[in-house]
C-alpha cells in the first residue's frame, strides 16, 4: 500500500467514526427537542443525558482529527478547500459551537431553556447538512480557477439536485443511525417506553434513507460520469450494504436482538462509505486535486504514520475504559449509580 493510500484510509476511517458517533449525537439532540415540543420529554431526556454527556467531547475530537489530519497528509487540500469553504465552513462552525455549549450551559441551568433546546435540536440537522456540502463540492463542477485561485459557484451549487439529495441523505442517515442506536441503548436500560418510541422512529427513517441513497447514485450518473462508472464497478459492495440494511430493518421489525441490528447498521454504513471512498479515488476534488498531487513529503508522511500508531496504542485502551464505564456498565446504564455532579 502506498503512503498516499494509507494516509487517506486512516483519515477516511476516522471520518467514518465521526459519521457514526456524530450521527448518534446529532440525532439524539433532534429527538430530544422533538420530544420537548410534543410533550414526551420524560421518555427520552434521561437516556440522552446519561449517554451523551460524558462522551460528547470525544465525539468532537473525531472531527478535529479529520481536518487536522487532512492538512497534514494532504497540505494542498488546505489551500483548495480552505479557500472555497470560507462561508459554509464558518456557518458549520457556528452551529457546532451552539451545540457544544449546550452541554455546558443546559445541563447545569436549573430550568432547561426551551429555545436553546430547540436550537440544539435544529443544529443537529443543520450541521450534517452543511458538512455534507463538502462531499458535493468534491464531486466537481462547482469550482473554477480564477487567476489561479479556486472560486466556488454558489448558484450552481444550490440549484443542483445533487446537492439537495446529499443534504437529504445526510439528514436521513443521522436520524436513522441515531434512532437505531438509541433503541438498543434504551432497551439496555430496560426502558420499555423509550425503546418503543425509538424503534418506531428507526423504522420510519429507514425508508427515506435508502431512497435518498439511490437518488444520489442516480444523480451522479449525469453529474460525474467517471465517478458513476467507478461506483458501478463496485456494485457488489453496495449490494452487500443493502442486504445489511434489510437485516437491520428486519430485526427491528421483529423486536429481536437490537445489538445485532446496530451491528448490521455499522456494517451497512461502513460498506457504503468505503465503497464511495474507493470509487472517489484518486480525486480529493474533481478534477483539480488528486491524492497524489496533494500529498505531503515522505518524511512528514512517515512521521505522521508513526505518531498515529503510537497515539492509537494510547487511545484504544482509554476508549475501552470509557465505554466500559459508561456504555457497558450495567449499573450506570440503568441509572443506579448515576451520581453525576
Amino acid at each position: 500500500m502506498s503512503l498516499e493510500i494509507l494516509g487517506m484510509s486512516v483519515l477516511w476511517l476516522f471520518l467514518f467514526g465521526y459519521v457514526i458517533v456524530g450521527s448518534i449525537d446529532y440525532g439524539a439532540g433532534f429527538f430530544n427537542a422533538h420530544s420537548i415540543i410534543t410533550g414526551k420529554q420524560h421518555i427520552l431526556s434521561k437516556i440522552i443525558q446519561r449517554y451523551l454527556s460524558p462522551v460528547w467531547e470525544v465525539t468532537n475530537v473525531f472531527f478535529v482529527f479529520f481536518f487536522v489530519g487532512i492538512v497534514g497528509f494532504f497540505p494542498q487540500s488546505a489551500y483548495y478547500f480552505g479557500t472555497i469553504l470560507l462561508i459554509p465552513g464558518s456557518i458549520g462552525l457556528i452551529l457546532l459551537a451552539i451545540r457544544g455549549s449546550y452541554y455546558a450551559f443546559e445541563s447545569y441551568g436549573t430550568s432547561g431553556h426551551r429555545g436553546y433546546a430547540f436550537m440544539y435540536g435544529a443544529s443537529g440537522l443543520l450541521i450534517p447538512a452543511s458538512l455534507s456540502i463538502v462531499l458535493t463540492i468534491s464531486e466537481g463542477g462547482f469550482v473554477s480557477l480564477v487567476d489561479g485561485n479556486p472560486v466556488l459557484d454558489y448558484v450552481a451549487l444550490f440549484t443542483s439536485p445533487l446537492t439537495w439529495s446529499i443534504v437529504v441523505l445526510s439528514i436521513a442517515a443521522v436520524l436513522y443511525i441515531s434512532a437505531v442506536f438509541l433503541t438498543w441503548y434504551a432497551n439496555k436500560t430496560g426502558d420499555v417506553k423509550a425503546t418503543d418510541l425509538m424503534r418506531k422512529y428507526a423504522i420510519g427513517w429507514s425508508i427515506p434513507l435508502i431512497i435518498a441513497a439511490s437518488g444520489i447514485i442516480y444523480e451522479l450518473s449525469s453529474h460525474n460520469e467517471e465517478h458513476f462508472s467507478r461506483i458501478m464497478d463496485l456494485w457488489w459492495m453496495f449490494a452487500l450494504s443493502f442486504v445489511l440494511w434489510l437485516g437491520t430493518v428486519w430485526l427491528l421489525w421483529k423486536r429481536k436482538n437490537y445489538g445485532l441490528a446496530f451491528g448490521f447498521l455499522v456494517g451497512q454504513f461502513a460498506l457504503a462509505f468505503f465503497a464511495y471512498g474507493i470509487s472517489h479515488y484518486p480525486y480529493l476534488l474533481y478534477p483539480h486535486l488528486t491524492i497524489y498531487e496533494g500529498f505531503t513529503n515522505t518524511a512528514m508522511a512517515i512521521s505522521l504514520v508513526v505518531v498515529f500508531i503510537l497515539g492509537m496504542a494510547l487511545l484504544l485502551p482509554s476508549l475501552y475504559l470509557l465505554l466500559k464505564l459508561f456504555l457497558f456498565d450495567k449499573n450506570y446504564v440503568q441509572g443506579n449509580k448515576n451520581k453525576e455532579e
Binding site: 487536522v68 497528509f73 512528514m300 512521521s303 505522521l304
Partner: peptide, 13 residues
C-alpha cells in the same frame, strides 16, 4: 502542512 503538521497532529491525540 508540509513541515509543521506533526505537532498539530500530536495535539489531537
Amino acid at each position: 502542512g508540509n513541515i509543521i503538521a506533526l505537532p498539530l497532529f500530536m495535539e489531537v491525540f
